[in-house]
Every structure is written in structure tokens, then in C-alpha cells.
Design a protein around this nucleic acid. Structure first.
Length: 441
RNA sequence: GGCCCCGUCGUCUAGUGGACCAGGACGCAGCCCUCUCAAGGCUGAGAUCGCGGGUUCGAAUCCCGCCGGGGCUACCA
């Protein structure tokens, strides 16, 4: 896996990373993390930190690395020199303006643009700034893509690509396949946008005498609801955003795995380990998939319910900073089947740190509330005792649960809250009784 | 423009010539359960399989054409 630190990790990168991880583990192979940071302008340390962070959060541990391309310049220089010496590449002294002019002309004449190769035969003299271009051969190439099957190209149709920029740094199409070969990468699993880059990379490998990867797999896009590319501005796409919004890494992994892949059975809920056991590139989808927040929410709810309660309490802590650990532990069981995200808990428990406004009560409700307060005064402050006391009271008067609980809830919590005995027990006893009495005062 | 990829319910998908007048899941609607909110159970609506030809006794599945979307065509990755 070789992400570029040119922006925070988003769900598309994360899914590519996941599929790489699953494939590597499934094969019993080695999962390598390489940082493709040859674009010095756009790469930042902050974005690199996001990558480590994101991988860690999702539980995608790498076996080797991280390697950084920015630390391997000598290797690229050496290989570029070899290509030059062996006549597979040449220096190009054309200025960006000249190239733009060539391109403009081709467009005006409605012919497909390809670099003219001027510098191959007679470079303009007296210039010292140059790029290195790969001299594309005229041949037919094909790969067996693990997802798409046979894909082939006529390399004569591809213009000589720049492989070394005038600042001496290699471009992606040079550094990436070269490093793959040097690092003995067997399978290149990456986003669909790279499919068209493959022939250039193969030509390069062939010239250098390095073996082509055993397999390629080009993954389909992850799209926004309008089928456009995900945008950081308009959509929630950053891993950190999901974490902050109360999503579990288990759920994100599970959902991402299903976004473009299925096990061929009707099962949908998987741990990382279970995914490793089932994953198969041949079952990856070819078409782009829209990221569906609703389905993620559903899966997140399932994973919340699968957590041991103590663990749920721990994960809830950052989202309920108003509450102490003991309260969290007591609240967790009642919360568990009511949450789709961890932040949902705030809505149900706000009453614990904020007094609700005075409820509107009809005379009968007020009377029931008064009775409840009286009955509860001498009750042990545990959910079980409270429930028993209220049930006794209810039977005594022939009230329905709704008749009795509704006024209590509105006096104590205001809006929605956990089952009434939990709602009460979680609150300090005196405070709960005060709220009830204040409502009927 | 050239080359390449893609196209099944709103969404994720099953489907590789007959068991498909297309199955599952999310979402949606209704019912049940129920102290609010959920969770859970049941039922339902929802796809002329992008379009048009062809092959075949038979096509979502094979072939051809078209349309639509996307990528590459950068001294980004």
C-alpha cells in the first residue's frame, strides 16, 4: 500500500488500504507501507501522520515500512541514468510554454496530441534545465487484471512520458513501479484511476529488466450520492471525521469491505479476521459504488450492540465528558440497544447534566407524579428497586405504564431517555425527587 | 478528440444460457411488541437487468452497434 500524503486519509484510500491488507493477509504475504511523497510541493508531515493514525485506528498493521520515496532519490537517479545510457530515455529541454503550444496546435488541428520528440533528435542548444522522457516503443501490451480481466493497449498511441522532473525528482509513474519491483511487490492493488498508467509502468519495468508484478487489481471508485467523486468540502469522507462522529473502527472496516466486495453469501457482518478469511479479489465489483451513510449507521449500531458493556462504556467516555466513569458503566447497558453512533448517547443522557424545563401536566398526571415521588422516597436507588416500587404503585391504582411513566419522564428528563427505572437510577436520588416535586409545585 | 474502464430495485449487491415474470441487505411504508427512544419480529412497495439489434427452443447472462458515466492523455498521484 502506497498512499500519498497530499491530503488527509479519506474513505477511498482507506478502502484501498483495507483490500491490500486483506489480500496480503489472506495470501500469508507481507503488507508493506510506503509513502509516495515525490511531490514535494503537496506532501506534508501532517498528512503523513494522518495515514499512520488512520491505519492504526482501523487495525491495519503493516509488516514492513514505512518507506518514504523522498528518502530514495539516489535509487531513482541511478535508474534514470541507466535508462538514459541504454537509450530508453532521453533528455527533454522543451519549456512548459513550448509544450503547451504543441498541445494547442494539435488540438486546433483536431489530431490526438503526443509529444513531438523534438528533443530526441535535435534538442535546442544552450539550455540546461531538462526533464527525462521515456521513449515509448511501438508494441501491444496487456495485463490480466484480477478484477477486470484482460486489458490491453497500443503503446504507439502513448506520448513519451516525463519520468524525471526538471527538479530531479521522479514522477509517480517512474518511482512507483520501480519501488514495487525493488521491494518485491507481487500484487499491485490500487484505484481505478491508475489503470491507464499501467502500460507506461510496464514499459519501464521491461526496459530496466525487472519482472512485472504477478498481478494487478484496479479497484472501482467510491462515489458521493450524486455519483461524482467524493469531495472533502461537501462530504464527510475523512477517517477522523468518522471517528469524531461516533463510528467504531470495526463498523467502518466492515462497511468499507462490503462497499465493492461481497462474500458470495448473505452474511454481512464481519470482523477484520473474518474478512481476511473470506476476502477474494475475484469478487470485487467493477463499477463504482456510492458511499451510503445509512448503511454505515446500521452496521455501526450492530457493532455497538456487539461490544461488551464495559468496553462500550470506555468508548463512550470521550463523547460524554460530563459523566464520570461509574455513571458511564451504569448507563452503558441501557444505552447499548439505542445507539447507532456513540454521539447518539448525548441526546439520551443530556438530562444528567442539564435540568429540563418545567413540564406541562394535566391534573391527573400531576397526581400520579406526586404519588410516584412519595413512593420513591423510601426506595433503594437501584433500577430493580425503582422498577418494583413503580410497578406496585401502578397496580395499586390501576394505572397503565404510560400514564405513570410519562409524567415522570417529562419531569425528570424532559425528552427521550432510557427506560424509566434506568433514567431515575442514573440520576442522583435527591435530584430526581426534587425534579419530580418541582414539577407539581 | 485519442486510448482505456464501467452500466441489475433510491443505495450496496446476488446472478457466469433454463431452478429469475430477477434473490438478499440498507433505507422507506404498514403491522406486532412496547413507559419515551431504540432494539427485535412479520408484511409490503420498489428493477421492462442503460438502449437497439442479433445468436439460441430459451439471454440479465454470448455477439454487434449505440447511448450515458468515469479515468488517462501533467515537469499531480
Amino acid at each position: 500500500m502506497a498512499p500519498s500524503p497530499t491530503g488527509p486519509l479519506h474513505v477511498g484510500n482507506a478502502r484501498t488500504a483495507l483490500y491490500n491488507f486483506l489480500f496480503a493477509r489472506r495470501q500469508g504475504g507481507v503488507f508493506i507501507l510506503r509513502i509516495d511523497d515525490t511531490d514535494l510541493e503537496r506532501s506534508t508531515a501532517e498528512d503523513e501522520a494522518y495515514i499512520f493514525d488512520g491505519f492504526q485506528w482501523l487495525g491495519l498493521g503493516w509488516d514492513e515500512g514505512p518507506f518514504r520515496q523522498s528518502e530514495r532519490l539516489d535509487i531513482y537517479k541511478e535508474h534514470a541514468a541507466r535508462l538514459l545510457a541504454e537509450g530508453h530515455a532521453y533528455r527533454c529541454y522543451c519549456t512548459p510554454e513550448e509544450l503547451a503550444e504543441e498541445r494547442r496546435l494539435a488540438e486546433a488541428e483536431k489530431r490526438p496530441y503526443r509529444y513531438s520528440r523534438r528533443c530526441l533528435s535535435n534538442p535546442p542548444p544552450g539550455r540546461d534545465s531538462f526533464t527525462v522522457r521515456l521513449q515509448m516503443p511501438e508494441t501491444r501490451l496487456s495485463i490480466e487484471d484480477l478484477i477486470r480481466g484482460t486489458v490491453s493497449w497500443d503503446t504507439a498511441l502513448i506520448g513519451d512520458p516525463v519520468i524525471v522532473k526538471s527538479d530531479g525528482w521522479p514522477v509517480y509513474n517512474f518511482a512507483s513501479p520501480l519501488d514495487d519491483a525493488l521491494m518485491k511487490v507481487t500484487h499491485v492493488i490500487r484505484a481505478e484511476e491508475h489503470l491507464s498508467n499501467t502500460p507506461v509502468q510496464i514499459v519501464l519495468l521491461d526496459f530496466l529488466g525487472y519482472a512485472r508484478p504477478e498481478g494487478y487489481a484496479h479497484l472501482p471508485w467510491v462515489l458521493a450520492p450524486d455519483r461524482t467523486k467524493l469531495s472533502k468540502r461537501r462530504h464527510r469522507v475523512l477517517l477522523t471525521q468518522f471517528r469524531d462522529a461516533g463510528y467504531l473502527p470495526e463498523a467502518v472496516v466492515n462497511y468499507l469491505a462490503l462497499l465493492g466486495w461481497n462474500p458470495g453469501t448473505e452474511e454481512e457482518i464481519f470482523t477484520l479476521e473474518e474478512l481476511v478469511a473470506r476476502f477474494d479479489l475475484a469478487r470485487v465489483q467493477k463499477a463504482g459504488a456510492i458511499f451510503d451513510q445509512d448503511k454505515l449507521d446500521w452496521i455501526n449500531g450492530i457493532w455497538i450492540r456487539r461490544l461488551p458493556v464495559e468496553e462500550l462504556a470506555r468508548r463512550l467516555a470521550p463523547f460524554l465528558v460530563e459523566l464520570d466513569e461509574a455513571t458511564l458503566k451504569r448507563a452503558a447497558p441501557a444505552l447499548q440497544e439505542r445507539l447507532r453512533t456513540l454521539v447518539d448517547a448525548r441526546e439520551l443522557l443530556t438530562y444528567l447534566w442539564e435540568r429540563p424545563g418545567p413540564p406541562e401536566l394535566d391534573p391527573e398526571s400531576a397526581e400520579r407524579l406526586r404519588s410516584a415521588a412519595a413512593a420513591l422516597r423510601d426506595t433503594d436507588w437501584t433500577p430493580g428497586a425503582i422498577e418494583a416500587a413503580l410497578e406496585r404503585l401502578r397496580e395499586e391504582h390501576g394505572w397503565t405504564r404510560n400514564q405513570l411513566f410519562k409524567p415522570i419522564r417529562s419531569a425528570v428528563a424532559g425528552g427521550n431517555s432510557p427506560p424509566i427505572h434506568d433514567t431515575l437510577a442514573l440520576l442522583n436520588k435527591q435530584e430526581a425527587l426534587d425534579r419530580m416535586l418541582r414539577a407539581v409545585a
